[in-house]
Every structure is written in C-alpha cells, then in structure tokens.
Amino acid sequence: SDPSEDRAPESARVGNIPSSTSALKVPQLKVAESAQGPAAAHTTDTAGYNAMEESVSREKPELTASTERVNKRMSMVVSGLTPEEFMLVYKFARKHHITLTNLITEETTHVVMKTDAEFVCERTLKYFLGIAGGKWVVSYFWVTQSIKERKMLNEHDFEVRGDVVNGRNHQGPKRARESQDRKIFRGLEICCYGPFTNMPTDQLEWMVQLCGASVVKELSSFTLGTGVHPIVVVQPDAWTEDNGFHAIGQMCEAPVVTREWVLDSVALYQCQELDTYLIPQIPHSHY
C-alpha cells in the first residue's frame, strides 16, 4: 500500500522531449479497484494519511515538438484524482505547456489535490511534501474552472485551506508558501528511527529536511552541544517487537515522539509542542 509513485524524486515530463529516451519516465500509475468507486480507492491508516495514492495507467502520452515553447517555470503533480480527472489535468497541462510529473521533486511548483467545495482535502504524501516545500497546493477546481473560463486563473483563489485531520481552515499551505525564510524545523536534528508504514523513510526524512531540520541516520550520531535540539521520530504501530520503542531512551537523551508530530506540524506549518506526542521511555539503569 506504499505510494510507489511518490517513492523517489524522479520526474516524468509531459510536453517536451528529453535529450535521451532513457530520461523519459512516463507516468504509469495504477488505479485502486473498488466496488464503491474512486472515493473508496484510498486506504487510510490510523494517522489519517492516505497511503494508496491515486492515478491511472495510460499509454505513453503524445509528445509535443521539441521546437514548441515549453513553460520551464511550472511543474505539476496530482493527488487523489480519478483517472478521468487526471486526464483533464493532463490536457490542461499540455495546453498551457506545463510539465506534469508523477513524482514530486524540487522543481515541482504545483500540487493539485482532490478537494471538496471548500478546498479541504485528504492528507497524502504529496500534500505533506508540497507544503514542506512551500509549493502551491491547490484544489482540482483550479484546473476545472480555468478550463471553463478558457484562461489560467489565479492560484490564490484555489489554494487548499485545510484537511480532514488537522482542520478545515488552518491555511497550512499558504503559511508554508509565505514562510520559506522561517522554516519550522530549523535548529532541530531529527532521527527517523525504526520501521514506518505507508510512507518510505527517505520521503519522511526529505520532508523534515525541507522544513529546515538536519537528518541524523543513527541514534549515536546526534550532535551533543548547545543550540541543537535532537528529536527521535517513530511509528509505534509499525513495530513488531512489543514496546521496543520504549527503550530508545536508553540509547540517547533525545525526546522520542510519534510520526504524528511531524505530520501535524507540516500540515499546519507550525512546529507543534512535543508534549502530546511524547512516547514514555524506560529510564537509564543506574548501577
């Protein structure tokens, strides 16, 4: 159930021909089969995070001529859309010479989310990475209204306002976009420790780096000194050995919190207090 199309920051360009055919990675995205229709094609874990990302398996898109002007500035990904909605975005992107990729990268400028009429969405990996990267996180209605009015409308009017977990109007995407000089995790050293489900560890690490944190791979690698705040992030329900995560405190002095601390902080683009996310640790033995 991992969102495989989000696994690594590679891009698939639509609308320009790469210098070599080997560089072309066409979105071959799968549809989750469901008797209840597209709305039930998501699996949500206890964290309220949509693990099964969206989309559609299609034939290789038709490439435009390399001489045609390509908008190098805009690059989009989509999240939560049905196959039909994805194809509408594809046509919109081609019309406006926008790069459409299946994986979010540093070059991505827009994340197009499936939302309700009030621009509230589910939480997906692309949603988190879009906010963390200060990108435009907009409703699919931006595409449909632009098509209806036959011009590209202003993104401000379609920015995602909230999500089904953290609140319907928290304005996290807007706050992140306007606060890239004040990253929420700066001054923190974060170790993403142990197993994680539904989200590859490297993507979680990239997320906290985008928010200004330094990533530490091992508990023994924390910088011990003033001005640096170490934090260990774990996902308790992913551990097979009972309560192993309670013993992390015996290996390092850092506070240990659940992954929800990261996800909530990123969604709201406000660093949350650790208290409600802390995992009790077995104290050091004193002999």
Score class of each variant (00 low, 15 high):
D2S: 03
S4I: 08
D6L: 07
D6P: 04
P9S: 07
S11V: 12
S11A: 06
A12D: 03
V14S: 08
S19M: 04
S22G: 11
L24I: 13
Q28N: 05
L29P: 12
L29R: 10
A35T: 12
Q36S: 06
G37H: 04
A40R: 11
A40E: 05
Y49R: 12
M52S: 10
E54R: 07
E54T: 05
E54F: 14
S57L: 07
K60E: 05
P61V: 06
S66E: 05
S66F: 11
R69G: 15
R69V: 15
S75L: 06
V78G: 11
G80M: 07
L81R: 01
T82R: 05
P83R: 05
P83L: 05
P83Y: 07
F86H: 02
Y90T: 15
Y90H: 10
Y90L: 08
F92L: 12
A93S: 04
R94I: 12
I98C: 07
I98D: 02
T99L: 13
L100S: 08
T101H: 11
N102G: 14
N102S: 10
N102T: 13
L103N: 05
I104S: 06
E106P: 10
E107Q: 13
E107A: 10
E107L: 12
T109R: 00
V111F: 01
F119Q: 13
K126R: 01
L129E: 02
G130S: 03
G134T: 09
V137D: 00
V137S: 00
V137T: 02
S139R: 00
F141Y: 10
F141W: 15
T144R: 04
Q145V: 07
K148Y: 03
K148R: 15
E155H: 15
E155R: 02
H156P: 05
D157R: 08
R161K: 14
D163V: 01
V165R: 03
N166R: 09
R168K: 01
N169F: 05
Q171I: 06
G172D: 00
R175D: 02
A176C: 05
Q180A: 06
D181P: 07
D181C: 11
R182T: 11
F185R: 00
R186L: 11
G187C: 06
G187P: 02
I190R: 00
C191R: 02
C192T: 06
C192Y: 02
Y193S: 09
Y193E: 07
P195V: 14
P195T: 11
P195L: 14
F196R: 10
T197P: 15
M207H: 03
V208R: 02
T226V: 06
V228M: 05
P230A: 10
D237G: 03
A238W: 03
W239S: 14
W239T: 14
G244V: 06
F245L: 13
I248M: 09
E253V: 11
P255L: 04
V256Q: 10
V257S: 06
R259P: 04
R259W: 03
E260L: 06
W261C: 01
W261V: 04
V262W: 00
V262Q: 04
S265P: 02
L268D: 04
Y269T: 11
Y269Q: 13
Q270L: 09
C271G: 06
E273T: 08
L274R: 15
I279A: 10
H286L: 11
